Simulated assay, not measured.
Amino acid sequence: MDRIVDIATDNLHLSAYRGLLLVSRDGQEQGRVALDDIAALIVHAHRVSWTTNLVVELAGRGAIMILCGSNHAPVAVTMPLSGHHAQNARMRAQWDIPRPFFKQAWKRIVAHKVRMQASLLDAHGRDEAQALYLMADRVRSGDPDNIEAQAARRYWTALFGPDFRRDRQAEGVNAMLNYGYTVMRAMVARSVVASGLHPSIGLHHANRLNSFALADDLVEPFRPLVDAVVWQMQADGVASVDSDCKARLTAIIAADLDLEGASSPVSVAAQRLAQSLAASFENNDLSLALFAPPSPLSWARIARHIPDGETR
């Protein structure tokens, strides 16, 4: 079972003991989680300590640890140095693949993201959905026309209202989006490493300071899932990144998607996408395992998904 563990309380100490993550305060245990169940450990609180052994144990299981700033965006990540038995061959194939291959892969990622945005707007009865469907069909290799940004300008105001502006430093909805995207990025980053790919060699993102450029590429189609949950929480009266908000956003990875005709959790969809890209690099034949955009009913279930797997 993949779990995202969030540490948001100060003065805690994290350690590993007999296959468990132990959380303690002043020597008293506060909780424990099986290390094998952890996909990512996210630390938001700024007065938290941990043992090196814990980080080593997490890395040995392919899990990552993410440190966040006050705006709930990640600022540092630990990752395993070895993630797959065929890692060397896959990284070589990833490095040697021709540049046009990267551009074609990015085209498919962008087109699918825009279709996901259009699908969510469609589920909410927004007229702008049809415009985004048409824009998705116009994405070219490498997205030289920046359809992704054009679609975003229509999408944000259509979903959250004409006064909304996406600002990573702002509070409220923006902070909730930051947190949800951090969860999704952690999930995808783990899938990238587990597939034997090098996370810093991106399809499109290429900032030399970004060690997870490929994760930032592959996470794009998953972002509208976060948007759906944040929209629903706002409608429910949630206005900040509180414990309930975090629980609902981390629960997204267990929500179901239609992947090649079968129902699969979001975490499995991320694994399949990373694995399909790795195979594409090795075979020099692009074939990405992308999930189908949800139906309106499925969007409603995803938006209301809660940690125990039910809906509210």
Rank of each mutant, 00 (worst) to 15 (best):
N178A: 02
S119H: 06
A73W: 13
A289L: 14
R168G: 14
Q117F: 15
G83R: 02
G196W: 06
V192L: 08
E57I: 01
L54V: 02
I42C: 01
F164C: 13
R61S: 02
L288I: 09
L81W: 09
H305I: 12
S263V: 15
A186K: 00
H13K: 14
V241M: 03
L159R: 11
L21M: 10
P293Y: 06
G161T: 06
Y133L: 10
L214D: 02
I306V: 14
A93E: 15
A239L: 06
A186G: 04
I66A: 01
L120H: 10
V48R: 03
S295Y: 02
R32L: 04
D244P: 08
P224Y: 02
P293H: 04
V77L: 08
L35N: 02
T250D: 02
A194K: 13
A152C: 05
A254N: 14
D258I: 11
W231G: 10
C68T: 09
D137R: 07
E220S: 02
H44P: 02
W50V: 03
A93G: 14
Y179V: 00
L297M: 14
R99H: 03
R190H: 04
D36V: 03
V5G: 02
S298D: 08
Q150W: 14
T250G: 03
V193P: 10
Y133S: 08
D256C: 12
W299F: 08
D137Q: 05
T250A: 03
A111R: 05
A213S: 13
P74F: 12
K246W: 01
G83H: 03
K246G: 00
K107L: 00
D285Y: 15
A239M: 06
A76N: 06
D258C: 12
G180N: 09
